[in-house]
Design a protein around this nucleic acid. Sequence first.
DNA 1: CAGTGGTCTAGACCACGAA
DNA 2: TCGTGGTCTAGACCACTGG
Lengths: 243, 243
Amino acid sequence: MKAKVTPLHERIGKDIESLILSGELSPGDRIPFEHELMELYGCARMTVSKALSALNAAGLIDRRKRAGSFVSRPKMHAMILEIPDLEVEIEGRGEVYEYRQLTRTVRPAAEMNEEEVGLAGGGMLLDISGLHIANGIAFALEDRLISLNAVPDAIQSDIAGMAPGAWLLRHVPWTEAENRIAAINADHRTAKLLQMAQRDACLVVERRTWRGDERITFVRQMFVAGTYDLTARFGAHQKKPSA
Amino acid sequence: MKAKVTPLHERIGKDIESLILSGELSPGDRIPFEHELMELYGCARMTVSKALSALNAAGLIDRRKRAGSFVSRPKMHAMILEIPDLEVEIEGRGEVYEYRQLTRTVRPAAEMNEEEVGLAGGGMLLDISGLHIANGIAFALEDRLISLNAVPDAIQSDIAGMAPGAWLLRHVPWTEAENRIAAINADHRTAKLLQMAQRDACLVVERRTWRGDERITFVRQMFVAGTYDLTARFGAHQKKPSA
DNA sequence: CAGTGGTCTAGACCACGAA
DNA sequence: TCGTGGTCTAGACCACTGG
């Protein structure tokens, strides 16, 4: 038997967590004081503190000086959204993934377009369009702009069969990203390229990424409705707000 | 001046974090050993350890015994998705929010519908439809099923002007939730209720919530395309996988 | 095998804020 | 006021694992 290799602070955390999730402790209830827990578990205060700090960071409890620690109320304003790598996703289903480049140009930002001007940062833009294809059927149209100011190497990325997103992920570290998810009716070009009827619904994902304050890329992906959807899961209360 | 009230372990963490985000430390680089950092900052090892543990929990670094701590490569397939409370969202824009109930029935699960059977858990379902309205204009249609097995009190929730989602949030703690996001063309009923042309695109959010193993509710919200979209933001690398 | 991170101790001082 | 959590110390032993 390999029994207890579980750290004590982790065990304390799990104990309290299960009390909360089982309902024995309800939101608002006070958790035993640190000195009570250190007596209960026969350990030093730092050990208890580590356990409670972890629960606090996870958003399971709120800690107030002089008052104690309390089970926090689930607020549910944030969930984890999976942003799948399309290639991995498709091949995970046992289908054949392919990326087909449609156009590729280097051009300056359109002056009236704030998005492009901000992205370019005074430099040129690499403008790439392509199709994501599963088992020979195009399911997504991607229009991407890359700041050559931020990623000069991108101009050499002439790998025809590689999606620019995958290339970027491997070559350019990013620090921040933002996704916008919406639905629109397919315009003429999109409908034609994705072989769908005009005005058919599309799921649109727009993604912007930064490295520090520098804009890296802007991409808009149009998915044929019904062939693709996003899933966000959430377990055990909300995450803490990032600083 | 109020200067330094920032805890030392936090300062150490921020220092290293900015080295990473600025690019001075690249993914794969080794960061100084704990004993080097404790010498550098003139503090105890526990303090350094606390800082590094936090960075590790945040997914910024990987720690390997005998080898040291290393800047982790951003893999990032998950982002934080904001799931806004519609009422708060709308009123935050300075518009007037209103929920108008359309139908409300208690019925058993349709036997051929797995979703409903699983949700009901042998009991009855509360079936509610309603419109979310901003400034007098309906922007979302909501169809919701609530398990009366899990939430018997829901049958008393006769507050006409209160969205069932808001009521549930205040009365029923949940432990797990899942969202599915997709786009579809509006069907006849939806188009009529939301005063949009048939086949106009809709953003669809389907949400399932659990309390432990017990299903609580299933809701489908149809949003008029263009009037609503979801945003997911992400800063500083991926979250750790939850146990 | 030797050095790393992981864990833990038994103290300490302090700021905060509920009483 | 004064008990609480927040932080920190100066040690310690151990498991793991890379060299």
